[in-house]
Structures are given as C-alpha cells and as structure tokens.
C-alpha cells in the first residue's frame, strides 16, 4: 500500500500519524506542499516531489496547515481520480464557514442563528437582527483568529470599519452569528467515518475556547445524542475524518459551530484515553479497498 502524506511541515499530529501508519507496516512518503508544482493537464502520470508518479499512490492523506494549499492540491488530485482523506469537497466546505452553514441548513443540523451581509451598513443591520452580543467571524480562518464578540453599536461600527478598511475582500463578507452563552466550555468531537471516537470539553475563562488559545481539554463522554449529531453534521459536509465543534445552549441543547477537516488532536488522546491517530489510520487503511 502506497500512501502520500501531504504536509506543510511536521507537527506533533503528523508524527503521531506516521507512527500509527508504521505500526501497520506502512511508510508514507512525506510530500511538502511547498514543493508541489502541478501540470494540471498531465494527470496522475506526472511525478510527485517524492519521485513516484501520483498514480502509484493508493491514498493521499492531506495534513497541510495551509488550508489553501491543501484544498487546491486535493482539488487537482481528486480530479485525476486519486483517493484522499479528506476529499476536496469536504475540505472546501469545511474551510468556509458560510458553506458549512449552508450544508448544515440543508441537512437540518442545529447551528447558531447566522446571517450574512456584504456591506458595513447591511452588516450592521445583520448584527442588530441577531441582537447583542453578536459574533463576527471571517468566513475562512482558524484557531479563533479575528473573531469578535460585539456588545453594542459603537463596537460594531468600529469593527466593521476596520474590516472594510484594512481587510481584503475576504473580510468584506460579513458572517454574523448570535452569541451562544455556553457554560464556560465547548465540545470538540472527533468523527471518523460514521463514528464519534472521542470528544473533549474545552474549558476556558475566555469566550474563545480553542485549545490553540489556551482552552483546557478534559474528557467529554460520547453519548448517543452527541454521537448522533456529530455524525450527521460530519455527513452534511461530506464526511471523512473530522473534528466537530459544538456549543451547549442555555437549555443544554447542542448546536454545531463548525467542522475542521485537518484536525489537531495532540492534546486530546490523553484526556480521552483514545489513541486518535491509530483510530484514524486504521479507518483510512480499511477504506482503501472500499469503492468511493
């Protein structure tokens, strides 16, 4: 079995993934996204930076920290018929919060009240429609960057002016959500195929609870209810190997906030007791012979 591991660089997760592959006697070729140089028309016969033709790989496992590089590489490789985790379609949906919201809406996945506008004036109206405090997010981005909780009209005007003046066009799509008054934590659940293999609470005194921003990870039991909503949410964006972020609203109901397609999990195996990397890799290996 030939596997290409596509990365921006090697982080803790990639080392865990490589170790999990090695445990199954598979040694992936590591391919750096900085070395990619595709001829779109040449197809999978052309050589990858590893020196092997792309067609020789049974699977491309995409782990780029650069969302755009990973996503477009998948677009090309999938178009040539190469199998990948995740797929381009899943990556493209997950990397865009607006497309994710639409996917959730189509499948009836509960999510925070969300509005979208394209000018500062209409964005102000959107913020007032969802009511204060509101949350403004870039449609692309991760690790809690550039999120803003907006408490009143003055701060809304300031943030909108900054976005319009300093941001590129990506920041002129105003994605506005109600603020979900969660109980000092959110939930990160790891879905592999049709199963939620583990989940953590991310606790923080800050309203942004990402572990990348200092949120503390503790085990969250995977109940039937949590598994059901996570698997349905993952399916809504195309399925695969996904980290589903959920909030608990004031009534204790789950709402799905977003889904990450190149999930980070270095801090999650210890509190959950689940070898996330091995679960992922065993699933991937099991899927290679399955017709897509």
């Amino acid at each position: 079995m030939r596997v290409a591991l596509l990365v921006t660089h090697i982080r803790a997760e990639e080392k865990l993934i490589l170790a999990a592959f090695n445990k199954r006697d598979i040694s992936p070729d590591i391919i750096l996204d900085r070395e990619l140089n595709f001829d779109i028309t040449c197809g999978a016969e052309q050589l990858a930076p590893s020196g092997s033709a792309w067609r020789e790989y049974d699977l491309v496992f995409e782990r780029c920290v650069s969302t755009s590089r990973g996503m477009y590489a998948l677009a090309i490789l999938n178009s040539w018929g190469l199998r990948s985790f995740n797929t381009y379609e899943t990556a493209a949906t997950c990397s865009d919060k607006l497309r994710t919201s639409i996917a959730f809406m189509k499948q009836g996945i509960p999510q925070p009240h969300t509005r979208v506008a394209f000018t500062p004036d209409s964005a102000m109206q959107a913020i007032e429609d969802v009511k204060y405090p509101a949350v403004l997010k870039p449609v692309t981005g991760s690790w809690g960057r550039l999120l803003a909780r907006v408490h009143n009209r003055d701060s809304a005007e300031a943030i909108l002016e900054h976005r319009q003046t300093l941001g590129d066009y990506n920041h002129h799509t105003y994605y506005v959500q109600e603020y979900v008054d969660k109980p000092g934590r959110d939930i990160r659940a790891f879905v592999v195929g049709d199963r939620t293999i583990a989940a953590i609470y991310r606790e923080s005194n800050h309203w942004i609870t990402n572990t990348a921003r200092g949120g503390l990870a503790t085990n969250c039991p995977v109940t039937e209810e949590l598994d059901d909503i996570c698997v349905r949410a993952a399916d809504a964006v195309g399925g695969g190997i996904l980290a589903v972020d959920l909030l608990e609203d004031a009534r204790g109901n789950f709402v799905v906030n977003e889904i990450n397609h190149t999930m980070e999990f270095r801090n999650s195996s210890q509190p959950t007791g689940v070898d996330i990397a091995q679960e992922v890799i065993d699933f991937v290996i099991g899927q290679i012979g399955v017709v897509a």
Partner: peptide, 23 residues
Amino acid sequence: LEIMNLDPIELELAPEVEEDWGE
C-alpha cells in the same frame, strides 16, 4: 524553528503563520 536537515542539523526560522493556516 524548522529542522531543514538532520545530518548535519540545520535549523531555520519557521515560516510566519499565514492567514489561511489552521485546522
């Protein structure tokens, strides 16, 4: 830092985090 070579060890400053980096 990023390890550019193992033998001999060569270290470079890791690339700056870009706007589209993440999960």
